[in-house]
């Protein structure tokens, strides 16, 4: 059945989208700001992995492990250099500044790597898979992506819900000034959140690059998809982000099954439908405040 295959492929694609959305969701949840350079940071991560893998001659998977801490530092720099100043004047400033950063990043990558598409070679893993029934095949890479997405989002959800650090992050997200009054260094929490967000963006970029070709100009589209995932899944819920990724991925592959031209439109249509009929998202809750 082609339809079942389309849904399975959609879930795999959803794994990448959930990875993209993870950092955006976290940053919005903690700092109440939308990082408009998120997509371009993901592309930066993909290029770093590609360059490192090629230069040192290591597997892209190994290169990812080395690039993640670098991306984390980029996140800290983003927080310290831009967001901390911008957030003081309000959400609008941080949006404008990160939009500026998005333009800078994209064009710096264009300048260095040109507009050509390239791909990240993961050898036989890119094509290999296992059959599930007569017409459904599951690629190893897709399955791995979904597994990483589940582990990452689930792990973060557990971190936030169960650990002391998670409590500190949630307290800061709710009210940074008061968090300071109970001894939490809100700037450090923000820096950590930005580090995790940007590192996961890099991870998402790397996985995207393993499954399809990528170029410096794909950042904005990925930001858009990541954002739709966050809204579809529901703000403030990382499980929702995972579900949102799957829904967007399935919408796009099923749309493509109907007519290849409808792939992306179908994704946007689901996003608009959620906005119209379930604005709090699939798994989102109404937030309350004191």
């Amino acid at each position: 059945m082609n339809w079942i295959n389309a849904i399975v492929q959609g879930v795999m694609l959803g794994g990448v989208y959930a990875l993209f959305a993870c950092g955006l969701s976290l940053m919005f949840g903690v700092m109440r700001t939308v990082n408009l350079s998120h997509g371009d940071l993901a592309v930066l991560g993909a290029f770093l992995v590609a360059v490192l893998a090629a230069a040192v001659g290591i597997s892209p998977f190994f290169a990812v492990l080395l690039v993640l801490p670098v991306m984390g530092l980029v996140g800290v720099a983003l927080q310290r250099g831009i967001l901390s100043t911008a957030l003081r004047t309000g959400e609008m400033s941080s949006m404008l500044a990160t939009f500026g950063l998005a333009i800078v990043l994209q064009n710096v990558l264009l300048e260095i790597f040109s507009a050509d598409s390239r791909s990240l070679d993961v050898g036989s893993l890119a094509t290999a898979g296992f059959q599930l029934g007569p017409s459904v095949s599951i690629p190893y890479l897709g399955a791995l992506t979904v597994a990483v997405a589940v582990a990452l989002l689930g792990g973060l959800q557990l971190l936030l819900a169960r650990t002391g650090i998670g409590r500190a992050i949630r307290a800061t997200a709710a009210d940074a000034d008061t968090a300071e009054l109970v001894g939490i260094d809100s700037r450090r929490v923000y820096a950590w959140a930005a580090a995790i967000a940007v590192a996961t963006a890099g991870l998402a970029g790397a996985f995207f690059a393993m499954r399809s070709s990528f170029s410096p100009s794909m950042g904005p589209t990925q930001l858009l998809f990541a954002f739709e995932v966050v809204v579809i899944g529901g703000l403030g819920s990382l499980w929702g982000t995972l579900a949102g990724g799957m829904v967007l991925g399935v919408a796009q592959t099923v749309g493509a099954q109907v007519d290849p031209r409808f792939s992306i439109v179908a994704g946007h249509a689901v996003f608009l439908a959620v906005l119209a009929f379930r604005p709090q998202g699939l798994l989102g809750m109404r937030r309350s405040r004191t």
Partner: peptide, 27 residues
């Protein structure tokens, strides 16, 4: 900064309580 003063031994119960509403009492 405030968190540093907490470490030094100053704690404020702010006007209007300012609890973290979505956290439990224990949290």
């Amino acid at each position: 900064r405030a968190h540093d003063r907490v470490a030094a031994g100053i704690a404020l119960v702010p006007e209007g309580r300012r609890l973290f509403a979505d956290l439990t009492v224990e949290e």
